[in-house]
Nucleic acid binder design. Sequence first.
DNA 1: TCAGTACTAGACCGTTCCGTACAGTACTCC
DNA 2: GGAGTACTGTACGGAACGGTCTAGTACTGA
Lengths: 213, 213
Amino acid sequence: MVSAGAPDNSQVLNRAARKRAAILEAAQHVFFAKGFVGASMDEVAATAAVSKQTVYKHFRNKGELFSEVVTSVVRARDAGIPAELLSSGKGSFEEQLRSFARFFLKGVMQPDVLRLRRLVIGEAGRFPELGEVFYDLGPKRAVEQLAVVLRQSSAHYGFDLPDPDIAAEYLLCLILSIPLDQSMLLGDEPALTDAELDRYADEGVRVFLRAYT
Amino acid sequence: MVSAGAPDNSQVLNRAARKRAAILEAAQHVFFAKGFVGASMDEVAATAAVSKQTVYKHFRNKGELFSEVVTSVVRARDAGIPAELLSSGKGSFEEQLRSFARFFLKGVMQPDVLRLRRLVIGEAGRFPELGEVFYDLGPKRAVEQLAVVLRQSSAHYGFDLPDPDIAAEYLLCLILSIPLDQSMLLGDEPALTDAELDRYADEGVRVFLRAYT
DNA sequence: TCAGTACTAGACCGTTCCGTACAGTACTCC
DNA sequence: GGAGTACTGTACGGAACGGTCTAGTACTGA
């Protein structure tokens, strides 16, 4: 019997690694639902179908488990940009930016990513270093990648873009901020459809291009 | 002896109202520092220099106290736009928008407002209605006020602005999002100086005007 | 002045939680 | 097959917390 929602690691991981993965996944679930203080180690152990002792064998204490959960989720989300996005030259500049915009917005608006963001923001006082990890692998990376695209394209299409790094920051906030801020304060229900997200992405790009070309 | 940081209400409020105010102020402090679950009613009572029984005489339970704290802080910040901002006609359109932008950004970046935002976002699962209160009296009001300004000014200066409500949304996120998102994830220390905030506000307005005029 | 109300101080109850301890069982790897 | 490691189940100590209770004190307002 393979537990639903989790890959069957029984063949590729030894027992210890398997247990560790189960604990991390259970902890993610519990922390996302109840926050750091609200979550209990007993519930994590029960959800992972593991004894509490085993939890403490893998993670020194609650805080370390929390840190590992957050960093592992952030890193898992950081798979990077799909190759086809980076192969520039396909379509107009606006179409290219639109592809990026839709990709970033869809990623950021994943329910788990939204929950993670809420968690990190809420615990920024207790775990400031986690905010930094999230920022570096989230917004910061996105801006850097957009800046590369802007630099290439402005050269390729021959228009003047004085400061691509700053332009990328404004582009990103034009794409993400409106739906993201609403989700942060008003919750993710009802979730926006893909079509609505695409409209936000496209409109953000449109405003950006009017300002910068 | 008047406690520092709080107005001396001893002359204008009777005892009950005075105690109630002291509890709210103490609770704000404790909740901001430790979050909802992390704060304890004993600490609130001690900080307010009040017996725990008195706390429970004024507020039915911890959740109600938390709600009252958040709504009272939000409403206190909702004093509205100073009159001199609304008296249009002074200066160019860009100067007028700059005044608004600087005003909004400075308000949003107040340490207490940042802490409140973090708190509301972190507890959005437990208290969704507080997110709504915050949103309605925060971003939503700001967008509405900006839309009024845009409507008036586009008529007054005779340029075409098809959808002032949507334009106001983009204007607001161009003004606020970059410093605000950084503060949410990276903490408020070190706080940005007024001059830096003004630069963000002015640059946001500049990008907006390039896109919309 | 005096009744009624608000407040105080502290004990208290039931629960929850983190982290540890322990004795016994399952697995893994040589 | 056998030693060594990982895991289980449960119990426990110690602390914290939300909320109630009680008995006594200070204040208020007519």
